[in-house]
Design a binder for these strands. Sequence first.
DNA 1: TATTTTAAGGTTATCGATAACATTAATCTT
DNA 2: AAGATTAATGTTATCGATAACCTTAAAATA
Lengths: 337, 337
Amino acid sequence: MVTIYDIAAKANVSAMTVSRVINNTGKISEKTRAKVKRVMEELNYVPNQTARSLVLQQTKLLFLLITDIMNPFYTTLARGAEDAAKKSGYRLLFGNSDENLEKESDYITTILTARVDGVLVAPAGDPSLPHLESLRRHNVPFVLLDREVPGIACDIVLGDSKDGARRLVEHLIALGHRSIAMVNGSSSISSARLRLQGYQDGLKLNDLPYDERYVYETSFGPLNDLTEMEQWIERMDPLPTAIVAGNNVLAIEVMRLLRDRGIGVPEHMSIVCFDDLGPYSEIEPFLTVAAQQAYQFGYMGMQMLIERIQERGTSLPWKKIVLPADLIIRRSVKDIT
Amino acid sequence: MVTIYDIAAKANVSAMTVSRVINNTGKISEKTRAKVKRVMEELNYVPNQTARSLVLQQTKLLFLLITDIMNPFYTTLARGAEDAAKKSGYRLLFGNSDENLEKESDYITTILTARVDGVLVAPAGDPSLPHLESLRRHNVPFVLLDREVPGIACDIVLGDSKDGARRLVEHLIALGHRSIAMVNGSSSISSARLRLQGYQDGLKLNDLPYDERYVYETSFGPLNDLTEMEQWIERMDPLPTAIVAGNNVLAIEVMRLLRDRGIGVPEHMSIVCFDDLGPYSEIEPFLTVAAQQAYQFGYMGMQMLIERIQERGTSLPWKKIVLPADLIIRRSVKDIT
DNA sequence: TATTTTAAGGTTATCGATAACATTAATCTT
DNA sequence: AAGATTAATGTTATCGATAACCTTAAAATA
């Protein structure tokens, strides 16, 4: 590998002069600048970021930890984060925890050893607290995405989960539904709790009873075992006329399960959910959803993170951004008024 | 930040002893080992990968450069790559070129300065050649994914594009279609060229004429201007009864365009394409596709890359893996026999 | 007992870049 | 013209970890 010293030797200057040319610092005569640049081109010199990071004590690397790389909500979010990072000259590392605390823990280790300058985290849930405390202890700035974690104060970008869920429920009610069930992510995740509350609020505001047998709690993430969900569906007697899914992945899984058992959507069962499906929703505009502004989650979160990094030392108050969800009505709900 | 020296001082040993404890090398008495470990825990020590990389001349970082992070083909591929990387103790950086040579070039710079140990690249196309030459010149091992680039010899994982396209066409023909058009990615991309050939082969094998007015070439990537595609559709007179799309993104865009103009799919136009749609194909099993083994692309590519890195110096012959595509028949094609 | 061997640890140099300080020679000031 | 300033460049120390070599005391061997 060509180093700054190789350049220096060939150009008959000191390494420091080469460094100055590279970084455009100090005073360098036009002649030497040109000479050094020529030699750099000749030898195909590329600076060693590793060495730089060591002395500068910053890597210009940021990290985005998401919980499901197959979920269009997160890939769209990643796009936003990437764009914002690039704009400020940072590079971005991605990690994918699969809603799994152990994988998340591995990534936290990676983050700490790689000495990234900051992290954007969609935490797996409340038990992520020690991971965040670890980041805090090691002075790594971070911004939370989509989920709050009780016990830690920090910058955060949230969706208005309660309101979104309530609107989904009221949409169903407006179309005549009176028996509405819910599949949700783990109650150790703040957004799942709020979506449940929104669901309950929606029922209460319309004088409908809340029956916990009509609520099933599982994981937001890729599900490997659907037998429990199947049993839940069997247990509901009578079947509801509609189901609210806590996110897009759950909606897809429930729908598949229902169809496998001959229960058509939307003919025999209506389904709505949180989060849109990215480009797929264009090919068959099917699911009625409370779409979150995924790109904005990433973009604004990244902006907050970078601001936090740059204002290091000064103590800005923690910021909290709450983005509303848009109700997009398509055809997964049957009008039974 | 706590360093190895802080640990050494507090434990009354030398830095080297601490290093030995961390890496389990050399001979250390149980007593000192325990003492050092205790101090490391007390001070929350985390090794500095930056310093390590500098002296070891390796970062244990790999890079995956894809061309469209919103495309389920690539996110699935990324999952495979991630799993394989993790298995061998490597961390993975992602980049997203958006089928854009300039963005690709930026990522190549990032890759070189970050001194990653190896790269998995889905190149933007034939003009990516200088980028690959740059990697080669700097001795960065790489494996190509999905697309060949004339002029460079290297390890590569490909799909059987020609065969897949031919089978899509013959499927259409079997269902009575005689007038079949094609939207394709740029002819500067090897897989686009092969898909076009497969399309032509399919026609020829069935004694159907090839008419280049029925072929439209654009980009595989996110399209921002659809007017040209619109004009192409208008120009075709009479309209074909079916369209083969070079990939899933194109299929979605064409379908939207057709539907906007009142041409229903599959009632008035049949559509098939390369690459499946990930989870979405489960919610509305609609598009008939030649599904590529996306996960395997990533997994096997990563394995090849890691092998290449580990056998550095020895000169293994270049390997080429060709994965077949699976024809998945759904309901986007109308039977008109 | 004298000599090797080994276990357990320490010292020093190094990776590639940059910050801080030092050195020249030329230019400016009064 | 003598000292002060400045432009242009060089020297040395440093970031945190590890490789390669060195030291010492105890254990093993002849």
